[in-house]
């Protein structure tokens, strides 16, 4: 008897702890009151509407989208060839390369942001936007390499040799045979990279300037000044966006196979 109840009770409690706060955020964002509170005071859509009118949110949303899409694409552009070299070639110094492309996952993001600020932005005059772009690309690179490497490992390498023996160049074999077969893995890497970059805070902390800051940093800043439910509304919207993307990916691709 006790054993039969064990699983449901544990899982219910843990899920309330993990997911409950998210529902509170969603509920609070429909509040009619002017301060963040639960249970919400009345029902209105005004805070959700307000999110779209705050100029800085719009700007920082654009920055974050640019970083998440551009940074992840760049990371893939760098990461796919590197993964391919590591999985298919006798690569000299392969351990060093592997270490280099995976360190961004080991080192705390705040340190990376600070290092870029200290050595690129301040002395060299590198623009904040570019610094953010470099930082986010570096941050996503390990994920890109890991996911793409995993799908390459599942792909037999004699397929490329077969293509070459049928007259294809090695580069041609990559595009004709390898790429079409790791498309799912690449898309999974893209989504993982996008979500990681979009939600990333520490790396961007030091990298903000006039008109250029990421959305999570902007939200943190807004919270310090105004304590209304608009951040809750924005959080809820973003959460639904992330969940929507992941669900679609899982549904159409079996995303979780790759992560």
């Amino acid at each position: 008897m006790t054993q039969r109840l064990y699983a449901p009770i544990i899982l219910l409690l843990v899920m309330i702890f993990l997911i409950g706060p998210f529902f509170i955020i969603v509920a609070a964002s429909f509040s009619a009151g002017d301060t963040l509170a639960f249970p919400p005071q009345g029902f209105s859509l005004k805070w959700i509407a307000k999110v779209f009118t705050v100029e800085s949110f719009r700007q920082s949303f654009a920055v974050s989208m640019f970083l998440a899409i551009g940074g992840t694409l760049t990371a893939l552009l760098l990461g796919i060839p590197a993964s391919y070299a590591m999985s298919r070639y006798k690569l000299p110094l392969s351990e060093t390369v592997r270490f280099l492309v995976s360190t961004p996952i080991i080192v705390p993001g705040i340190i990376v942001g600070l290092a870029l600020l200290r050595y690129f932005v301040i002395p060299v005059g590198l623009s904040i936007t570019l610094a953010l772009f470099l930082a986010h690309t570096a941050l996503v690179l390990p994920y890109a390499v890991r996911v793409v490497s995993a799908s390459l490992a599942n792909l037999r390498s004699d397929m490329e040799e077969a293509a070459v023996l049928l007259g294809s160049s090695r580069l041609g074999a990559f595009f004709r045979v390898v790429l079409p077969n790791i498309r799912g893995g690449i898309l999974a890497a893209f989504i993982l990279g996008f979500v990681t970059s979009f939600n990333q805070v520490p790396v961007s902390l030091f990298l903000s300037g006039p008109g250029v800051r990421t959305l999570p940093i902007d939200m943190l800043g807004y919270m310090e000044i105004v304590f209304d439910p608009s951040v809750a509304a924005l959080s809820a919207l973003l959460a639904f966006l992330s969940i929507g993307i992941v669900f679609a990916a899982e549904r159409f691709l079996g995303f979780s196979r790759y992560v």
């Binding site: 037999r156 004699d158 397929m159 040799e161 077969a162 293509a163 045979v177 077969n181």
Partner: peptide
Amino acid sequence: FQSYALFP
């Protein structure tokens, strides 16, 4: 090839 190496 022993594995046939067809393009899936």
